[in-house]
């Protein structure tokens, strides 16, 4: 070590590369070290294992009378299970060909042969409020579905966004009919 320092004084130029190398190596090690330490400190804010474990729920849709909906709690968010009337289904199907912001047919949003059951995550895709059911209101600017109280997003009877600031349709969660009337969500 002592010799190399002495050597560095002897001639000027060749040492510069080694100095640069040491600087770059030291910086790289420091940045890598800081990143390695920072990651656990950042990642700890992600959902913990017990939060992620709240995965699925089961529900007997038979309990929902025709033309009504229940609101369940699924992953700490509201889940709408709506028993749609034939009129609501007809309106939803009629809306398939409208100018939709987030195009989707009504058939793609329900299970085959189960068009009367509409299952939605009740979280407005704008800023996360829970839309209220608009009571079949079909006045101009309303589509008989849901109305978000926060910023006035209007959803139709298929839960598709029709008016207001929300960019997407109300999400349809992953679910299956385990029996003719029992759904498993998640």
């Amino acid at each position: 070590m002592a010799e190399s320092v002495v050597g560095a004084h002897a001639d000027e130029a060749p040492d510069q590369d080694r100095r640069d190398f040491i600087h770059i190596a030291a910086m790289a090690a420091a940045v890598g070290g800081v990143a390695a330490v920072a990651w656990p400190l950042i990642d700890q804010m992600n959902p913990s294992a017990d939060t992620l474990a709240l995965s699925s729920i089961e529900y007997d849709v038979d309990k929902v009378p025709l033309g009504q909906q229940v609101v369940l709690l699924y992953r700490k968010q509201p889940l709408f299970v709506r028993h749609r009337t034939p009129q609501e289904i007809a309106e939803a199907v009629a809306g398939d060909h409208a100018d939709l912001r987030d195009p989707a047919t009504d058939a793609s949003r329900v299970k085959p042969g189960k068009a009367e059951w509409l299952v939605l995550i009740g979280v407005c895709t704008h800023l996360g409020c829970t839309p209220g059911f608009d009571g079949g209101n079909l006045a101009p600017g309303h589509y008989g579905g849901w109305l978000c109280p926060c910023h006035g997003s209007v959803y139709d009877t298929s839960g598709r966004i029709r008016r207001g600031p929300a960019p997407l349709n109300l999400a349809v969660p992953d679910y299956v009919f385990e029996t003719d009337t029992k759904i498993k969500v998640g």
């Binding site: 950042i42 992600n46 959902p47 939060t51 992953r75 700490k76 968010q77 800023l127 409020c129």
Partner: peptide
């Protein structure tokens, strides 16, 4: 819920940032 959803408007990574910020599927 509304304020943390504002972050979710960022394209692509927005929803992941919201989840990271609130530490769950939603505010809890």
């Amino acid at each position: 819920k509304v304020i943390t959803s504002i972050v979710g408007a960022v394209p692509v990574i927005g929803p992941s940032i919201t989840t990271w910020l609130v530490g769950g599927f939603t505010v809890d």
